[in-house]
Simulated assay, not measured.
Amino acid sequence: MPAFSLDPPQTAWCAELRTLAAERLRPLAEKGEPGHVNRALVAELGQLGLLERLFTSGAVDLCLMRESLAYACTEAETALALQGLGAHPVHAHGTPAQRDRWLPRVADGTAIAAFALSEPAAGSDAAALELRADAGASEPAAEPDGAARWRLTGEKCWISNAPEADFYTVFARTTPGAGARGVTAFLVPADRPGLGGTSLDMLSPHPIGALTFDAVPVTADDVLGEVDRGFRVAMGTLNLFRPSVGAFAVGMARAALDATLAHTAERDAFGGKLKDLQTVAHQVAEMALRTEAARLMVYAAATAYDEGAEDVPKRAAMAKLLATETAQYVVDQAVQLHGARALRRGHLLEHLYREVRAPRVYEGASEVQRGIIAKELYAGREAAQ
């Protein structure tokens, strides 16, 4: 695969996105209430045409958007990403009726989407989820119109945009004891009877909550994809969004690196500037090296996705793993080189320090990514024999 580099239009577009994020999106983000959906911010993303690009662009463009927005406004980046994560299953697997009802509203920022996979006892082991889709009889009940009907009973937890989303992509067990092969994806509007939720007070500033399902009714018209094949919907979505989580991380790392370059070049210390100390210069070089390596792996994975390569799961896992671990390292080192000022409320690095931790956990923790990589490596070895 050729090395990734930006062409002039892409470079200009990324610069434009960083400017828009700083001048139009960050003021709206600052007016938002931490832990709650910022609908004004989402609406502005829609007005700028960025949400529509979630459904018209490939993985590389998604990564460019997430990296560029993250550099200047992490809240805007996350709001955009969550719209994509929650709505991509509808875009990729929805019926014409589902798509017509929800995708235009997601694109213009008037409907909030959410991806509801994790549960209290099934986070990293997503195939072990227990939310039940109980049929009205021993088999999905055949209604007069031929629609199969189920009742969803159980809980979801750590769901971004919950409980304030307008609809949820929900993964439930339709066949007990079947592991990943017994899961179905449903599109569940937030106003369905029996669906409730609460907000969770988390370190990350974006909204995260828990959902409760008390015999929530769903029909065949709510199925995304095929019955008992919902795990494919989930993994297909994650294979697209995992590299872009890496792009989010790279955007934060680049912001931290640039702040560190400015600070160490201007800060007087020990009779000179901080940058003149070999220890500091080498540390900054290491931060830059790791950031660029992570960035290249992210865009290699995104390019592989867009080209339909066979090794997308492995590349996606590698990109997310390396980029999120790298961003944690770079932001931490940036804080160290800035000293106490970086820990003061309102400082860029104080904000990034809180933001950078969660991506190592969500959409598959780092340990899960290592497991995926190893599984794909051994599967490739067996296929070659």
Rank of each mutant, 00 (worst) to 15 (best):
T153S: 15
G154H: 03
E155H: 13
E155S: 09
W158K: 11
S160P: 09
N161Q: 14
A162N: 03
P163C: 04
P163M: 09
E164L: 10
D166G: 08
F167I: 04
Y168L: 05
T169N: 01
V170S: 12
V170T: 14
F171H: 03
A172D: 10
T175M: 07
T175Y: 06
T175V: 11
T175K: 13
G177M: 09
G177E: 07
G177S: 04
A178S: 06
A178E: 04
A178C: 02
A180G: 05
R181T: 15
R181K: 15
V183D: 02
V183F: 04
V183A: 08
T184W: 11
V188P: 14
P189K: 09
P189Y: 09
D191M: 14
R192L: 09
P193T: 06
P193L: 08
G194F: 07
G196P: 12
G196Y: 11
D201G: 01
L203W: 06
L203M: 12
S204T: 01
P205F: 07
P205Q: 10
P205K: 07
P207N: 05
I208P: 04
G209F: 05
A215H: 05
V223N: 11
V223R: 13
L224H: 02
G225Y: 04
E226N: 02
E226T: 08
V227K: 09
R229T: 15
R229L: 15
R232F: 10
R232V: 13
V233P: 08
M235S: 15
L238E: 12
N239S: 08
N239Y: 08
N239P: 02
N239R: 13
L240E: 10
F241G: 01
F241D: 02
F241H: 13
R242Q: 15
S244E: 07
S244L: 03
V245Q: 15
G246K: 04
A247I: 03
F248A: 14
F248H: 15
A249Y: 01
V250N: 00
V250G: 01
M252D: 01
M252F: 03
A253E: 03
A253W: 07
R254M: 09
R254A: 04
R254V: 01
R254K: 10
L257E: 02
L257H: 05
D258V: 00
D258C: 00
A259I: 00
A259P: 00
T260P: 11
L261G: 00
A262C: 01
H263Q: 04
A265C: 05
A265Q: 12
A265E: 14
R267K: 05
R267T: 09
R267F: 06
R267G: 00
